[in-house]
Design a protein around this nucleic acid. Sequence first.
DNA 1: CATGAATGAGGTTTCATTCAT
DNA 2: GATGAATGAAACCTCATTCAT
Lengths: 228, 228, 228, 228
Amino acid sequence: MAVAVTTKAKRPAPSAKAKAALEPVRDAERTRQALLAAAEIEFSTKGLAGARVDVIAEQAAANKRMLYYYFGSKEELYVAVLERAYGAMREAERELNLTNLAPLEAIRTLVEFKFDYCQQHQQIIALLAGENMLGAAYLKRSKRLRDMNLSLVDVIRTVLDAGMARGEIKPGIDPLHLYISMSALSYFYFSNSATLSVAFARQLNSTAERVLRRTHAVDVIMAFVKSA
Amino acid sequence: MAVAVTTKAKRPAPSAKAKAALEPVRDAERTRQALLAAAEIEFSTKGLAGARVDVIAEQAAANKRMLYYYFGSKEELYVAVLERAYGAMREAERELNLTNLAPLEAIRTLVEFKFDYCQQHQQIIALLAGENMLGAAYLKRSKRLRDMNLSLVDVIRTVLDAGMARGEIKPGIDPLHLYISMSALSYFYFSNSATLSVAFARQLNSTAERVLRRTHAVDVIMAFVKSA
Amino acid sequence: MAVAVTTKAKRPAPSAKAKAALEPVRDAERTRQALLAAAEIEFSTKGLAGARVDVIAEQAAANKRMLYYYFGSKEELYVAVLERAYGAMREAERELNLTNLAPLEAIRTLVEFKFDYCQQHQQIIALLAGENMLGAAYLKRSKRLRDMNLSLVDVIRTVLDAGMARGEIKPGIDPLHLYISMSALSYFYFSNSATLSVAFARQLNSTAERVLRRTHAVDVIMAFVKSA
Amino acid sequence: MAVAVTTKAKRPAPSAKAKAALEPVRDAERTRQALLAAAEIEFSTKGLAGARVDVIAEQAAANKRMLYYYFGSKEELYVAVLERAYGAMREAERELNLTNLAPLEAIRTLVEFKFDYCQQHQQIIALLAGENMLGAAYLKRSKRLRDMNLSLVDVIRTVLDAGMARGEIKPGIDPLHLYISMSALSYFYFSNSATLSVAFARQLNSTAERVLRRTHAVDVIMAFVKSA
DNA sequence: CATGAATGAGGTTTCATTCAT
DNA sequence: GATGAATGAAACCTCATTCAT
């Protein structure tokens, strides 16, 4: 979804003339992006092993050969998808500028952001689920991904300290585990909604349920961080 | 035949008569269980699509044909694994007898139970992750699994009501979402430990880290349910 | 040709009953041999790169899957073919017992043997030609082949020494280069008969021509070794 | 365009006019030759089937499209390579002027020439080996190659007759088979040096070994032709 | 109940070749 | 003359499954 938009945004429909002059790539980039987008869907719904190269090519309206032309192999395409999705998530986190907000406001914002990002990028959740099943083998392999250090934890630490100084946030909170909890409350809801819905015979994907969940997640975290 | 000899060798030679009557049954069950155990590992580490029938048979020290003899197909074996793992988890939850405890104690117990169960059965987490990627297609298909209704939510509701009556637990908590949060705080930590460890360059699987996490999970939930 | 004979020789048409009892292999060995035989033809006429796995399977009246079942990969099958052909050649050389003959007789016998073996196993010539184009990469890789040390050179040395002692053979002949020359005179005639026939517009494969060549090869070597 | 710039850079900037007229032709020929050279290496090391069009183009620093532009197809390029190499060899033989030499000197010269040519053009040996595996199919197909009749045999016949007349060369030698033997003694040594080196655990490519071989080849042939 | 051999459908990958610029 | 992108056929290989014993 967001991917297609991003891609489109890159080429502001050039005139026929301009195109001839400025576009040395024919449609290389477009094809690449189409393959990535199709692959993201395929990998996130079927996993690395279950994904089919033919399906990806077909969905990208590209030739199967192109997939190898641009990415080398199914696995390398998978890594490319992972890198892009993971990188985008990190990038989004980095752009939050939480330190500009009041501490409690920053915490609330982050929880809501996590929830919204999960909702808007459910493929990433599935992608990560698959990657975790494989022991993060491909994430480890990718230099680009390993290097994306999560400075967000530092930001959280700063926020917690500021809140403590103000007496609004209780002391002794581990910023990493707080981050994990904030992620967990949203991620798990989306990642396991299928089995949960069956188990509880309650449609957890509904809009009403989501509103409920978002509020709940915020409440849980806020109750935890506030000083008594 | 050589086959019979091999089989016999496995345990103290019983009388010829007893052997004819009892042995095949027990060995059959043993083979079945070996296949299930091997399959659980294979499916939970590779997913349904990535799992290999040959590997399962080999790991079970059984013949591939037996797999089909007992389970019919790879998918049916997968469902059997799922049913067993999921059923066991439900069974464990049912045996908790939370209503015998004081409300806050019951909540704490449940959170700790969730954490401990996740830790002790990490294959189930991976299994569920895979199943969720597939939209819970097989869980839906299994009559046995659909019928395992989660009465635990009712138990939680009862506990919450009792706590409210005592003034120990704040009102307005949705028992289902509380259950999801309790699960999430432990499940996510285990299910995503591989990618989280890479992302934060911090070994989240260590014993020290686990102790930390368990306490943290309890703290988060307790802070949330307690009346202000 | 010889291959098929060898294979057949291994199973003296058992009665239906005996077969059931004695053959635990179903047709494993037969299938393996059929694949090897078909592969030898395919590899020797098309080379490793040009050979087609499908063709080999079809010619062996086997399923393509069996090829991988027994040999693992096209390359490993190629090595198996090479090992068998090369090993057989060495074995044949080893069985010559040249030291029992008078020196000059031994030399003549060896030249004639080389010629006859080349004629009877022209696939090996083509196989070796292909392998040499690849820099003997696979021959080097095969432990079995590397270990087949050519003691024949030692035999030749012994023969030359005996001949010198008798005054029948001239001194100073390098046994290795003599062996290479004996091989060359026959090998080259067969290995290059296709291009030579075109170049000289003379059908070098004819029986008449072969008789001529055999005599010629013997004459050249005998003239060389005899003391003046 | 960038292309023109690159091209220009290759040599001393000619006048604009001259450039338009002369450059394309010369560069065309240069590209053609680069492709032929790269193809010779590729075909001689991998064979027709194993050779890769991409590799040839890349090694020639040319575009793959050019390969098709100039040669039409991989096979036609192969034939072009074969024609060039084979033609050059024949041409070299033709320029020997053996009839100007004394008979025995002529024979010796030819053997040495064969050896030296093999050593200096080992790609041709590999090329011919590949072509022979294919039954000389492409050599047959090429009109140019078929027409290069090997008049050398006639020269040899003349030399032999002259030698016989002088009483220096023994009678009854078939000039074609003598030619084949002279070729064989050198060709086989080079064509099979890879497998021979492995088989005898002796590095046959060394300079010392080559000197030995050259002398040996001459000795063998001279011993054969000389009248007793 | 158990096993090794066999199979066909389908998966990933490679290749020579051509198109559009 | 030259180039990067694109293609379809076919190559090698894998997999779940079944047969014959």
